[in-house]
Write a protein that binds this DNA or RNA. Sequence first.
RNA 1: GGUCCGUUCGUCUAGGGGUUAGGACACCAGAUUUUCAUUCUGGCAACACGGGUUCGAUUCCCGUACGGACUACCA
Length: 501
Amino acid sequence: SPTGALHIGGVRTALYNYLLARKHGGKMILRIEDTDQSRYVQGAEEYIKEALSWVGIEFDEGPDSGGPYAPYRQSERKSMYKNYALQLIDSGHAYYAFDSSEELEAMRNKLKTQKGANAQYDSTTRMTMKNSLTLSVKEVENHLESKTPYVIRLKVPDNEQVVLNDLIRGEVTVLSSQIDDKVLMKSDGMPTYHLANVVDDYLMKISHVIRGEEWLPSAPLHVLTYQFLGWEKEMPSFAHLPLLLKPDGNGKLSKRDADQMGFPIFPINWTDPKTNELAEGFRERGYSPEALINFLALLGWNPGNNQELFSLDELISAFEIDRIGKSGAKFDIQKANWFNQQYLRAKSDEELAGILLSDLKLQNIQCDLEKAISVANALRERITFPKDLADVGKLFFVAPTQFDEKIAAKKWNQEAISVLSMLGEELHQKKVITATSANEILQSVTAALNVPSGKIMQALRLVLTGGASGPDLMITMEILGPQEVAARIGYALDTLGRKVS
RNA sequence: GGUCCGUUCGUCUAGGGGUUAGGACACCAGAUUUUCAUUCUGGCAACACGGGUUCGAUUCCCGUACGGACUACCA
């Protein structure tokens, strides 16, 4: 429904639908459920399509590609729904209701004061309200003719067992007296979700309804609707998915939680058209669609073995609806990061170099492909996001101008100074070095000065990177080249001092 | 409040009447790297509780607790 950005839970729901459809050679249909005009959000439909397309979910039918059951937007199908509502009235399963919102509220408030009573429009209260069950035929006609606003409500039977067979939860039985007389047609002439969904699923020959658990309570109502419309045989299978929960505490995962914990909740960037507020998406944050999909697939489903890394095709062949869990899954961004890392590492040096090159270009840093490949190779084991490549790789192009004070205080000592001074002089005379020769030179210097090389490594790192972390130091020296290393040593000696008191 | 759904390491989960209850993420330690990281090895850590059924229950049944969803002319 185009009521805002599709969030990550919706992506997972779409994914499970997609996996099942692909696995069994079915059709994946995109239907836009835009029956609530007041909640319609500009750009939301496009967002849904783009987001799903980014993660690799493709539709066989939908508003763009068309299909045998077009149109695929419920607003464009508006005229189709009323006949079915009328059919339900004719068969005695629905009725007109003329109650104003004030009257409804008054009824609910009155009921709330009675203990144990369910404040709802149902078999116990409908005869006290203003509807075609309580009004005379003449009065009803008058209302309809004078265009009194009305809704059409389902007449839910008094005391019947409604049985829902859920693919995930098994048999769920609800007593019909617990279900209220849901509005089927709104006063603006639009159907509610309940009617539109049932009618369209029937018309579009939908085989499976896989949706979030929040729909479970209204599923019996849908079963009832299928029965009343005489479509019980064509009723789709239902599967109600466990919810995605917030990482700490309990409750449904929300945008607020995600913001607080500092991770995205939308697949791609979303700018709220009302507030103009930008919410960063997983895509823009640097998650690959493969990683996101893999992570999401395993949040509530598992293959029954220890395999964790799945391509979309592998997911399709492994997916089984009865291996979906029943309980809600907390959203663990660390695991998502781990998946991202796995997929990033699986890329070749050339691919990583390409990412590095384009990121460097944005910062106006020149780099040739050969060097980019070396840098990518040096960095490949230490990155989680593509941007890490340029973030940490930057040290190969821009010399540090300041040094981490804590590390300097700890590691910048007389031994380091003498080793580095000598190392700088040695390197200054060289044109090229390899990791191996760099190591040899370092070893000879430390041996000559009788300093264990392990003791000055962090000082060397500090000089070369400005901080305490980075790729292998010998490799770093090889990529930097002897002249640059010597220059950085010289700069460090100048700024950090050649003597320590 | 009512209805429905759920409950295995901190997290995602496997398992299933008799198991040393398995894996992954995270965390911790050791080894390697004369280097932070990687990698490797190891460690920590779970069947919500109470009743049944049973020779035996974490597994089946019932209850309790806890959690969640729903309770709109929203989807």
